[in-house]
């Protein structure tokens, strides 16, 4: 407790001391072999986020509590976890947004294999990232000769705000509730990456006979998405993943795949050819 007092607030130089109170936390502790929710009572201060309280827990009561974090400013996307059952960044979840008199439950992301405590193995996502064909630079344009209009890059720029916290991947029921879909489904983050490249004004994939739309549907499981929008709901960057990336991709796929006229034409051509 003395340590907790010494640590109190980090208000330190300048500012007035912040008011403190006790919070009850239930934190999942364990590893791949098993574990459970452990209860703690920890000091919290005004203006703090859940990650501050987890850090205080670490410094005072559970020094080996594993938690992945990095920038603590909502910019790197390392500290994804679930607070009261909802996927959140620990560093962007303010204590004041949670009921003060109730126990706060913090668990690791439940879609990925757990490593230890609040840390999960997010390798699935890095694997999926490798499967998306990279940007294809246009031939005949030297570095420095790229000309793109702001309105043409704006759509892809929205998707490039992604901090890869993988909360959307974590919340998506297609893989959260169905391990067997993992091989076939890239998840919202990487379907959005395909949309980003498909909307890139200078991507030359088509010139290389690379059809990103076909790839999205056939190799990356766009059809599994039933647009229930949880990815958008949890996105800490407020990217409109469903409305601006996934649905437009579905429409682009429909352009070539589910358009009856196009289908008819193609079938006739195939018969003749």
């Amino acid at each position: 407790m003395t340590t907790a007092a010494k640590d109190s607030g980090g208000s330190g130089d300048g500012g007035p001391p912040a008011a403190g109170y006790q919070v009850r936390l239930r934190v999942w502790r364990g590893d791949a072999d098993g574990g459970g929710l452990a209860e703690f009572t920890v000091q919290a201060h005004e203006g703090e986020v859940v990650l501050d309280v987890i850090h205080r827990l670490q410094a005072t009561q559970a020094p080996d509590l594993a938690v992945r974090w990095n920038c603590k400013a909502g910019k790197c996307g390392s500290c994804g976890a679930e607070v009261n059952g909802r996927p959140r960044l620990l560093c962007m979840t303010r204590m004041s947004a949670l009921p003060r008199d109730e126990v706060i439950t913090v668990t690791p992301m439940r879609t990925f294999p757990v490593i230890r405590d609040l840390v999960t193995d997010v390798g699935f996502n890095y694997g999926k990232a490798r499967e998306v064909p990279a940007f294809v630079p246009p031939e005949g344009l030297a570095p420095g000769e790229y000309r793109m209009a702001q309105q043409d890059v704006a759509r892809s720029q929205e998707f490039r705000k992604c901090i890869e916290c993988f909360l959307c991947q974590n919340v998506c029921h297609v893989i959260r509730d169905h391990d067997d879909n993992k091989p076939a489904f890239a998840g919202p983050r990487f379907l959005m990456r395909i949309a980003e490249l498909d909307m890139h004004p200078l991507d030359a994939a088509a010139e290389q006979d690379l059809d990103r739309r076909a790839g999205a549907q056939e190799d990356h499981g766009l059809g599994y998405c039933n647009i229930t929008k949880c990815c958008t709901e949890v996105c800490p960057e407020n990217i409109h993943i469903t409305d601006n990336a996934l649905i437009p991709m579905k429409e682009r796929v429909a352009d070539r795949k589910y358009d009856p006229l196009v289908w008819l034409g193609r079938t006739i051509r195939r018969r003749r050819g």
Binding site: A134, P137, Y146, Q150, H200
Partner: peptide, 17 residues
């Protein structure tokens, strides 16, 4: 400029640079 050839999307000027 090299970053652009790898897919970076910087904010643009009116003439596209």
């Amino acid at each position: 400029w090299e970053l652009e050839t790898w897919g970076a999307l910087f904010d643009r000027t009116a003439d596209g640079r």
